[in-house]
Design a protein around this nucleic acid. Structure first.
Lengths: 104, 104
DNA sequence: TAATTGCGCAACCAATATGTTGCATATATT
DNA sequence: AATATATGCAACATATTGGTTGCGCAATTA
């Protein structure tokens, strides 16, 4: 299974989950209440988010709280950086970033 | 077919194409040479990128040059912004962004 | 201790994605 | 005009996805 951050945020439900738990940690049941999907479907999404370290779990009794783990999000930010330089018109820096591709 | 920017950048080949044509416009054949995939496979990726306006085409004789269209990339950047505020520790601004979710 | 609750996991299913092959069309070359 | 080249498009095969149902386990409650 493909499991990287880009693939993780491709799904709209997963993006919504990330936004939802950004403010506070939530259990799968609580999260599922915000969507049309079943708990199991949400649980699957959480597993994927967990596997690419966008969320972390914390067991509390029989409940498991899922919490946003923001750090891996920087990976997307970093990838975006090269394009950000284009739309900001900072072409000099772009040249550095893409220097490997400039051999023609 | 699902066609939004997030889904477009989920595929590693498509991300590579975007980086590749960032420095200069290229034809499908030229792009395909950089990958293991066939020209047709690349062509399909280009169509998807085209449909979410991440690339634009320019016909030149019988060749079609594909060029990066960076603007839609800002959509990702904007989505990322709410999380950027978290990792930058700017929680006040986060509160504004996520204010709808703070009713509990 | 028995029933209930919260959860993950495996099996299965339908829809979708990605890739291939073959073909049609338009332009360029001979 | 005939051939070669660049490309898109449709049909098809296979893998992956997102979802469901059913089960088992651990913790809570009665």
């Amino acid at each position: 299974m493909r499991r990287d951050v880009f693939q993780a945020i491709a799904d709209p439900t997963r993006r919504a989950i990330l936004v939802l738990i950004a403010s506070k940690a939530m259990t799968p049941n609580a999260i599922a209440e915000h969507f049309d999907s079943s708990r199991q479907a949400v649980s699957k999404h959480l597993r994927i988010l967990s596997e690419c370290e966008l969320v972390k779990q914390e067991q509390q009794g029989r409940e498991i709280y899922y919490q946003l783990q923001v750090d891996k999000m920087k990976q997307i930010d970093k990838w975006l950086d090269q394009f950000r330089k284009i739309w900001e018109g900072r072409f000099n820096e772009l040249d550095n970033v893409l220097s490997k591709l400039k051999k023609e």
